[in-house]
Design a protein around this nucleic acid. Structure first.
Lengths: 239, 239
DNA sequence: CGTAGTTTTGAGAGGCGTCAAGGAGCGTGG
DNA sequence: CCACGCTCCTTGACGCCTCTCAAAACTACG
């Protein structure tokens, strides 16, 4: 078993601006903390849950980096998202009481375990929490629609540009650089997420390098010209 | 103004097995009914809401057929879903208090207006309703992941076959035929949803007809061989 | 330091997009 | 009731973007 439990307090967690307790007052925070008392460590390559596992809890990423992916019976695979610090994993499991995707740690990670029945109970007491849960689920829906737009109507360069911009933007919101990042996933995983083959991902990276838009050295990416990437995603306006 | 209000009762609505009141008892049903007292009629081609509209309510389709689509600043368009009787529209608006897509009626339609603040209040009182709201949102997330799989890893024939099977399955759950259906959307809208051009949609329909898998006459489709469609979607198992 | 996994790059093929023309269905009005 | 125009659909020809197959280079890790 690669999990381990540790007591922590939401109120003192430096992720509380990103995570579930957004906007909660002291009492609400204390009560939430009494519910989220378990943390779990996931080693790189290990799964937080698998397709078909009983759904009991949501998970908040405390550190590390995850991917979620669905798999068909004939072995097709689709990465449905990459989750970083402060993001919530497991919403897919609510509807059928079983998870419908796999969540895999792409680096050693730690998550807060949030038993869903207790989250529901608490959100019946606290309007703020209830509203926040709804927003988290709605945000995931809106995000998915954005991915559908990307997969349905963009070409390879546009997809990769949009992907890189999205990653740095989320990293920047967590205090990292706006122009430099380390990819935690392989070219194949990027390709699966973006609906293209790993060779096409690699070629598109190379093209961006040739154009002077980015520097790439393996997993390290330096965005030299953000405007150029924006122009690729949005040919008309550059925004 | 193309809307009009009419009193109705959830308890006597013949969609209650598909819609929000699933599993509610009499008291809960009565209370819900007091909240969902307005219906709105939408003419074919008219919008239920537009991107940027203030989010106030969820909508349950009572009759008719809708599409939702997102639009980029440079005019790209992506249909994100088709909604039929008993399905819920508007979940995208919760996160930012404004809608992030357009909902358009593809035929004359009627929806129940469900003011979201009142839904939230009621779901603080009734666990059943709360849980049901969560499931509806989770179902949408899981559905979106399925579309991502389709867009990211399937070829034209597979996409269209999966689309047709999904449509008849949902229609069948509403008492319609398992093998015949009328498409409410154009080839272009199908193409937008499936990430392909309308010409490719038309050609793929024609191919299915040549193969003897379906009959097509404009918007009318007769599925002659469901197994063949299943085999196209799932080459290995046929399931 | 060897091996497995990952990434890059090339060459060729094919699926789907693009452009174009013609046809069918349907609502409107004469 | 028929003519007209508009929208939607079908089909063909051609080209390109991305996939496929293949080989080599690089990196990470034991």
């Amino acid at each position: 078993m690669d999990s381990q439990s540790i007591k922590v307090a939401c109120a003192s967690c430096n992720l509380r601006e990103l995570c579930l307790p957004v906007g909660l007052n002291q009492e609400e925070m204390d009560r939430l903390n009494s519910v989220i008392s378990i943390r779990r460590r996931i080693k790189r390559g290990a799964s937080l849950f698998h397709t078909g596992d009983k759904f009991l809890s949501l998970f908040a990423v405390r550190s590390g980096f995850f991917k979620t992916h669905v798999t068909t019976v004939d072995g097709r695979n689709q990465v449905t998202g990459f989750q970083m610090t402060g993001e919530i994993i497991g919403l897919d499991g609510i509807v059928n009481d079983h998870h419908s995707c796999d969540a895999v740690a792409l680096e050693d990670a730690e998550v807060c375990v949030m038993p869903f029945d207790q989250i529901e109970q608490l959100s019946r007491e606290f309007t703020t929490l209830q509203h926040h849960v709804h927003k988290i689920m709605s945000r995931e829906i809106v995000r998915d629609h954005g991915v559908m737009l990307l997969l349905g109507s963009m070409r390879a360069e546009e997809r990769l540009a949009a992907f890189l911009l999205n990653l740095v933007q989320r990293l920047h919101a967590r205090g990292f650089s706006q122009s430099e990042l380390i990819l935690r996933m392989t070219r194949e995983e990027i390709g699966s997420y973006l609906g293209m083959k790993l060779e096409t991902v690699s070629r598109t990276f190379s093209k961006f390098v040739e154009d002077g838009t980015i520097d790439v050295k393996q997993r390290y990416v330096h965005i030299k010209n953000t405007d150029a990437l924006n122009l690729i995603v949005n040919p008309q306006t550059g925004r």
